[in-house]
Design a protein around this nucleic acid. Structure first.
Length: 493
RNA sequence: GGCAUCGUGGCCGAGUGGCUAGGCACAGCUCUGCAAAAGCUUGUACAGCGGUUCGAAUCCGCUCGAUGCCUCCA
């Protein structure tokens, strides 16, 4: 099945600043690269939002029937803390602090990264390459850039010559900056004597004797510049030009700008057709960041062990909360917002669970085909998950009406409804029904159903003291009874 | 200082020239032994000021405020 032939997908391209119809280089195939994390500490929730946004995009492409090669790297080579010569790389710094090998740091936090993303139900990418595994490829690109005259070598380091590059190319086209402005407005930074211009960036840095992560190169022992690894790995696995490059908004400049420059300088091709940027997650109105203290770790949300939120929230609730905002908008995390999302999430999941037991009738009271297309239209409009979710709630409303016997649905439409719900909620949005998934849920269901039976007997005998006691005490345990036309059901909150 | 983004009803959050998502909260009603759940109904909100237009939350200008990038960051 190739639904993409029926759907016209439009996506926001940061390079042009416009929404454009998505045209892959090769029909039916999508190549997508997303800048992954630097693994020097636990992944924080802001990181997760970005990767979740692209996970949702990955999932939608797959749902549309595309064959997607999704590459997301792991940055495991340490990069400089700052531009000064005494700058330390983050991984080495952490290694020194914890008295372990840099690669132990990398391993530990790579595992944490994978575990956390798995809890949030992110699919693994097709390829997850590491920077240290592609040193040779990076060196080859530096050679090409040097050959083309867009870089210069000095004291065992190699720098990209931005000013020279800008004479024949457009440095700043992605971020909307002009080199002249940058030159005029450069802040005074210490110790940049090696570079011809402050705008130049490192392709290769000479390793000082105390620097642990180092590799041999034609220019001596050193390590690659930060921007280079993405160019090397995206080119290797997706080609010199590929469909989509994604990442957080904060990488737009300079990181992605430099990637464009490196690719154009080395092979002459503009590397990416569609640049996608996911916006920031803020906490208390400020950007979440590892380098400041303004952050919360996913596990602290799942466990409730934090002093920001009033209770613990399931990963799926967090995911749902994030998907209720558009990926290009700034989203602010707060306790109230999370509580509101949690309730909505449960309502949605209750609706999904009800579909199977819905009675069927002679007609369907709503136009399921046009409703389905509305769901697609939402996603086709730059992956508008908030709108999709609003349509899903429309669906839930109909489900509840059918359940109460106020509307009807035909047998065929019921099957369609279930298929659409399942496709969008579980496949595209990647939500999980995390209620009642315990191993003992069969036992639990039996017990609760017994209590429901006893309560209804008490009610029939007008023994309301007993019936209310059963109801209220179950409620206190997080089991909510729901009296409907055809008997009582329950849900676990 | 430069560049960029944003400011939507009690809260969160879509929309982006006329037909004004959705969730949560609140109120009324239906249902109920009472509730809860579910359904129905109600909210004319778009920072401020000026302009363009038959018509603007949506376009333009200014002001104010917030945030991001300009240095490692998703």
């Amino acid at each position: 099945m190739q639904p993409f032939k029926q759907q016209t997908l439009r996506i926001s391209n940061s390079l042009t600043g416009k929404k454009e119809v998505f045209q892959p280089l090769k029909e039916g195939y999508v190549g997508m690269y997303v800048c992954g994390p630097t693994v020097y500490s636990n992944v924080h929730l802001g990181n997760c939002r970005t990767f979740m946004s692209f996970d949702m995009i990955f999932r939608y492409f797959k749902h549309l029937g595309y064959k997607v090669r999704y590459v997301r790297n792991i940055t495991d080579a340490g990069h400089l803390e700052n531009d000064a010569d005494d700058g330390e790389d983050k991984i080495a710094k952490k290694a020194k602090l914890e008295q372990i090998e840099p690669m132990e740091v990398v391993q530990r936090y790579t595992v944490d990264f994978h575990e956390t993303l798995q809890k949030l139900n992110l699919l693994p990418p097709s390829i997850e390459p590491t920077a240290t595994g592609h040193i040779i490829e990076q060196i080859e690109i530096i050679k090409e850039i040097l050959d083309k005259g867009f870089a210069y070598q000095i004291n065992g380091s190699v720098y990209f010559d931005v000013v020279h590059f800008n004479k024949t190319h457009d440095y700043g086209k992605l971020s909307g900056r002009k080199l002249e402005d940058m030159i005029t407005n450069t802040r005074a930074l210490a110790a940049q004597d090696e570079k011809r211009n402050p705008q130049d960036f490192a392709l290769w840095k000479k390793a000082e004797p105390q620097h642990i992560m180092r590799w041999p190169s034609p220019w001596g022992d050193g390590f690659p510049g930060w921007h280079l690894e993405c160019t090397a790995m995206s080119t290797k696995y997706l080609g010199e030009t590929f469909d989509i490059h994604g990442g957080g908004m904060d990488l737009k400049f300079p990181h992605h700008e430099c990637e464009i420059a490196q690719a154009e300088a080395s092979n002459g091709n503009s590397p990416v057709n569609y640049w996608l940027h996911a916006n920031m997650l803020t906490l208390n109105g400020k950007k979440m960041s590892k380098s400041t203290d303004n952050n919360i770790y996913p596990n602290e949300i799942f466990s409730g062990e934090n002093n920001i939120l009033s209770k613990a929230f399931q990963p799926s609730v967090v995911r749902f909360f994030m998907l209720q905002a558009h990926y290009t908008s700034i989203l602010d995390l707060s306790n109230d917002a999370l509580l509101a999302s949690e309730k909505g999430y449960y309502r949605l999941m209750d609706g999904v669970r009800l579909i199977g037991d819905l009675p069927t009738g002679a007609i369907t009271h709503f136009d399921i085909t046009s409703w389905q297309q509305k769901c697609y239209d939402a996603m086709n409009d730059d992956f508008n998950t908030p709108i999709l979710i609003s349509h899903l709630f429309e669906g839930v409303k109909h489900i509840n009406l059918i359940k109460e016997g106020r509307e009807q649905i035909t047998v065929e439409d019921k099957v369609t409804l279930k298929t659409i719900f399942s496709a969008f909620i579980f496949d595209v949005l990647g939500l999980e029904d995390q209620q009642g998934t315990d191993n003992d849920s069969d036992t639990l269901h039996g017990v609760v159903n017994l209590l429901i039976h006893l309560r209804n007997q008490a009610r029939a005998n007008k023994d309301y003291a007993t019936s209310d006691q059963i109801r209220d005490e179950l409620m206190a345990m997080g089991i909510q009874l729901k009296d409907g036309k055809d008997g009582t059901t329950f849900s676990l909150n």
